[in-house]
Design a binder for these strands. Sequence first.
DNA 1: ACGCTGTTGTCAACGGTATTGCGCTGATCG
DNA 2: CGATCAGCGCAATACCGTTGACAACAGCGT
Lengths: 231, 231
Amino acid sequence: MPKSPANTARSKRAGSQLTPDAIIDASLRIAARGSEDAFTVRRLGEELGADPTAIYRHFRDKDELLLSVADRTLGEVLDSIPEGLDWKGRIRALADGSLAVALKYPVVGSAMASRTTRRPNEFRVVELILGAVMEAGLEGAEAALHYRMVADSLLAYVGQQAAYFLFDAEVRAADESAWTREYRLVDPQALPNITRLSAELAEVTDEQIFEATVGALISAIEKRAETLRGA
Amino acid sequence: MPKSPANTARSKRAGSQLTPDAIIDASLRIAARGSEDAFTVRRLGEELGADPTAIYRHFRDKDELLLSVADRTLGEVLDSIPEGLDWKGRIRALADGSLAVALKYPVVGSAMASRTTRRPNEFRVVELILGAVMEAGLEGAEAALHYRMVADSLLAYVGQQAAYFLFDAEVRAADESAWTREYRLVDPQALPNITRLSAELAEVTDEQIFEATVGALISAIEKRAETLRGA
DNA sequence: ACGCTGTTGTCAACGGTATTGCGCTGATCG
DNA sequence: CGATCAGCGCAATACCGTTGACAACAGCGT
């Protein structure tokens, strides 16, 4: 029993050892390891070299920690957007940055896809998108609606991609081989379109899909602005 | 081991038998109760009047059960789509039906948003969307790409909505009041667009957003088909 | 320099989750 | 009629997030 509790733990006790920022940093290190290392409270304690439950001195629960981590990553995305872009460029930059950071920290991206952090950087994102749709020519309720369309669609798509990356490689491989194997072996009578396009279906890349999706959102804003301007 | 007679289909077990279908039914009953009743193995056993672990005699694990449940609900959506609709109508019907069923069984909708079931009804959905985009005028790789755009975007959006419905009412109320309260109290200097549109932001409805999103996807297909036809 | 007080880390424990191994039972079949 | 064996219950396992009691320290007023 190495239990002399009085003097063992005194080695490191210089002020506040564990700060919220240090905990967020450690969380991001674990999150960056993706599916190879589960993001658990116990694992986080290990990463910090501290007792797992120590984090509860700085965050009410794991959810609040996750919201803070998400806000940090959102800030990274926002800071990576260059100045001087037009509205389409800003939306594209936000989309690309969000996807990149969600794939870098999949557990964060997937957990936050249906949440509202109500933290500073989230407001900056709202402001950015609203500014873009207004620059495109929308106002009032139309601007609000199209902001929500962009924000919700983007968040959902990016979160889904992150969740997919969170599966271990084994499961992902099974999913992807489905396109190249099972879709070729389908009943040609009942499913003629799949049969005809099985080769093309296997060759579509995630980048193409994302580009098409973002493009669809931008076109919708543009088209709506034109319609309103004409009327 | 030799699974001998195929003909004795009727006489499996007479008494309180647990069949895969009965388990799926019970799962849907629990899932329909949304956030008021967690979808756990123990709760499922209770619903079935059986030991919780009995489920593992019919499904390898909870994930496989969930995939089967999801396929069942997908079938319901597909069967609800009327015949004789044009391609836009079919996509809209699929979108509306998917959202409805995902909100009816939120735990299923949210868990399956980033999965591929590779079960019969999923193939039917693929066939349906592919048929729609081809009727719109797309072919080959373009049809495949736009199928993926519609499928992925729809699945992600619907899954996100389902996950949001899965929070208990308390958390949801806090999220919604953020739009009407916190967004009004924001710094007008740093966030002028939010300040100006806070009232309109609070009034956007989920139905409007979904309609706008689906409309954007349909327009993108239409526009692409026009461009290719012109060229 | 003292003791009080509040903060922060440690430890053990609790209730929750999915899942597995073992043993019984009873319907079915040779 | 007796043997077989799938289906089910039970107990146990390995995690998970979280809490409460306690110990050690920092900073404070006196």
